[in-house]
Computed example of a mutant assay.
Amino acid sequence: MSSRKIDRTYEPDGTAVRVTGYAQAKEVLRSTGTVQAGLGVETVEKLPPSIRRPVLYRDGEEHREHRRQTARYFTPRRVDEHYRELMERVADEQLAHLRSEPAVDLAKLSFRMAIEVVSAVIGLTESRPGLDKRLDRFFPEKFGKPGFTSLHGIYWVFKQNFQFLGIYLADVRPAVKVRRRQRRDDLISHLIDEGCRDGEILGECLTFAAAGMVTTREFVNVVAWHLFTDDALRQRYTGGDETTRVALLHDLLRLEPVVGNLKRRTTAAIPAGEAVIPKDALVDVDVSTANLERADEGPGLAFGDGPHKCPGAYVAIQEADIFLSKLFAIEGLRMVKPPRVAMKPDISSYELRDFIISVRPPA
């Protein structure tokens, strides 16, 4: 397997208990004595109690029941039967852009692919054109800190609220309006059945946008980067059957997890190997380090583990394989310029941009 492309230099939070061992990390993530931390949970906790939190920020029985009721949308059988044809079609559409242009940014093609697939799963199917651009504005490379104590903070308050409103008006409200008239078999319809208000549905949709659209784009990009720069790996992938290709994708994801660090807060003293982490401790689970201990457990902890393990893991792997297998089957495919790497240090996640590829010979 190739060496890492992503420099995982990471400055741990000095106030957190850092966990780097694979077994200990899995133990923490599976523990019922922890709750979600990081990923903006501090902001969500400030919302009025009457507002239902997105599933990412809930724990305990409420969280388990929601996951139980929505698990059917993400089973391998459902994904294969309901979304494989869609994935094939969208991949062909995006690769048609590659064939028609002198060169394209792979990050844009892979993002449109991920958006189309996840939108179908959750029910964002009535969006106005430009959802990829709206999401790029909502999840910029560099975040400012909103607040009312400086002009910079006030700017980010209004900017963030403006982006919220844009996605609500152009994407969420049209989908909700259609499903309030006639229910469909998707996540938004389920949320309506549960009595969720439009703002609460918006929160869930943005959670799935971050966890399903944004992360899948980065995964596709980093795998492509490896395949472009390692001939033996590329031959193994393009010459293998689906089982072989998926195993290779799992291993690359283990090597290059999109989110390198996960945080939890303990609600009770919990074991972590031979140590005991005390109650009310912030725990920093170093997924990228822990994953290096294992080469035989698929993607390792790249999708998390325990109650908050990513429900869309199978969706991400299947769409990545469909897109990448079609991409690398194109004759004359070449990398014009490797991607520019940006990092989000709070969760040690990478973003690959300006990844220029072409199917035309060099001038």
Rank of each mutant, 00 (worst) to 15 (best):
M87W: 01
I330R: 11
T244I: 07
G239N: 10
S3F: 09
S31R: 03
R294M: 08
L98D: 09
G123D: 01
D354V: 09
E116M: 05
L106D: 02
M343Q: 10
I115T: 00
P345W: 11
Y22M: 07
L29M: 14
I51H: 11
V28E: 10
G300Y: 15
W156E: 06
S119A: 08
S348K: 13
L255H: 07
P76H: 06
W156P: 06
A175S: 15
L169W: 03
T34P: 07
P338F: 10
K142Q: 09
D284W: 14
Q182I: 06
P140C: 04
A295W: 11
Y155E: 07
D305R: 08
F208D: 03
R99G: 12
I317M: 14
G240L: 12
V258F: 14
K108F: 07
E351D: 09
A16H: 04
P48I: 05
I347R: 04
T289A: 14
G306D: 01
I356C: 02
R234Y: 03
A329T: 13
I277D: 00
V19E: 06
A103K: 05
S3R: 12
G260Y: 14
S348P: 02
R294H: 06
Q69D: 13
T75A: 04
R78H: 04
V118Y: 01
T216S: 05
A281S: 12
K326M: 07
Y155A: 11
D286H: 15
L227G: 01
C205P: 08
D198Q: 05
P299C: 04
Y57R: 05
M343H: 13
